[in-house]
Write a protein that binds this DNA or RNA. Sequence first.
DNA 1: TGGGTGACCATAG
DNA 2: ACTATGGCCACCC
Length: 110
Amino acid sequence: MKKYTFYDNVFDVVRLIPEGRVTTYGSIAKYLGMMKSARMVGWALNSTINKNLELPVHRVINRNGILTGKNHFSSPFKMKKLLEKEGVVIQNDQVINFNEVYWDPTQELL
DNA sequence: TGGGTGACCATAG
DNA sequence: ACTATGGCCACCC
């Protein structure tokens, strides 16, 4: 029996991100009560790459709306492509309509 | 077992 | 306005 770790909590939140919306590492960390450990959120997602978890990790970006994690995908273009497919407008690895598609777990969830 | 590490963020200078 | 830095803590050798 595996212990339910911080990583698992991160995965749960990511799973809840609606299609066509994005959120940030910091927001997830904040929602989990560890706003100063935003770094770990990214690292948690990184660990999913090797595994076959089907998580919309492409919907998680940094607070500036930049796709900082794109280099960690199988292809750097995959993240952008997936987001655009969901209606997110991206230019120069940055989400243009960030304010519109931003999904804050601390507000949307309760 | 312990130390290094990391897809970040907020603050201080 | 921009750069530097400290914090945080689960995971992996």
